[in-house]
Design a protein around this nucleic acid. Structure first.
Lengths: 199, 199
DNA sequence: TTAGTTGCTTACCAGATGGTAAGTCGAGCG
DNA sequence: CGCTCGACTTACCATCTGGTAAGCAACTAA
């Protein structure tokens, strides 16, 4: 589903924020629509059901992540540097827009919530090449699929949890240390990836 | 709230599974009770409201994590080794019972969902000593609170995301690689913590 | 025997949720 | 002018939600 109208894009933006902050079950169509001064039925006019809205948000996120991944893969030829570039971009991206990190983590936690549309699970097209890229590095090509998946998940968790928890942690410790921590995270993500790629 | 009766403990166990798998909003009292062949009102008889049930689960998790933390702190005197011990125990624990990891991550993602009862936010009593412990290490005592919080979050994400996503990832890639990955994760968590503690 | 307590049930309710149906309003167009 | 079409609304509905009230059976204690 490709969306063009301005209202649809606005709805998609708000829906994304709600889904990231409160999850699928915590997000109500009326709540999303109300933020733009619209009724729930206006939303259903653009996206035929809650599930389709959810998958539209996930499709947007998938494209965003694939862009980061392919961009990183075009910048260099060495798999290690490609991975480093991807995670650094991801961290940078997640700091600017925490919904990226929150949605990514939430999708992984979700066990069977919204019906898997079109067969494939959300973000599957991101996870697969990412794991493949880990397996393409010198240190991990002998280690097997399971180890590569483990490392990919570990790095995603390490990079995404802080930005995803930004709002919650700010309530716990105040906004200042979180901002500072996020900036530092961007700066040392490269180190993190590099040291974990060595065996 | 301390729970003693067998039914209460059973309800708490199921509620924990549901909360970990589907989150606060995705968990219904009727669904939890039905899994024990009871009605929703039986659950409300033991836990007076959904919020109190939620906080009972969180209290249980808090105690579990504090036990791991204090146990690790008593085993040695060096902060670095204490942290390593804690995260290794946590990983071990999370592999055996994925709800630990899933609830931990979900609590961090939650922005304002269930009313913060008794003033304090859930797991605050775990996060604070954990960050303090990071600040007590040689490499991080000069780095400031924000950096320590960042590292703690990074390690929690790295260690917990894979176990927390166990069920979801099994649907994506089949159960075999996940089991294998979890076992490997337990084995190399010590390495992970050790390398990240160096500066 | 009776009173109280525990652990549950059925009955019920108000509010929110996702979704359907039908209609309004304005812009574009033959 | 009349027509369609997109964007949106009001009206409505079945279902599910958390929560209250009252009652019932079993056990315990005075």
């Amino acid at each position: 589903m490709t969306v063009t109208s301005q209202t649809s894009l606005d709805l998609l933006r708000i829906a994304r924020q709600h889904l990231a902050a409160r999850g699928y079950h915590g997000t109500s169509l009326a709540g999303v629509a109300a933020e733009l001064g619209l009724t729930k039925q206006a939303l259903l006019h653009h996206f035929k059901s809650k599930d389709l809205l959810y998958h539209a948000v996930m499709g947007q996120l998938k494209q965003q992540l694939l862009d980061l991944l392919f961009e990183a893969m075009e910048a260099t030829e060495q798999a290690e540097l490609q991975l480093e570039g991807f995670f650094v971009s991801l961290c940078h991206c997640a700091v600017q827009d925490p919904t990226v990190a929150a949605l990514l983590i939430r999708v992984l936690l979700e066990e069977s919530e919204p019906a898997a549309i079109e067969g494939a699970l959300p973000l599957q097209e991101v996870l697969e090449p990412l794991v493949a890229l880990v397996q393409a590095t010198a240190g991990w090509q002998q280690a097997g699929f399971a180890a590569a998946l483990g490392l990919a998940t570990e790095l995603l968790g390490a990079v995404c949890l802080l930005p995803a928890s930004q709002a919650g942690l700010s309530r716990r410790f105040g906004p200042a240390p979180i901002d500072e921590g996020l900036n530092q995270a961007v700066a040392h993500t490269g180190d993190l990836v590099r040291t974990r790629l060595l065996r």
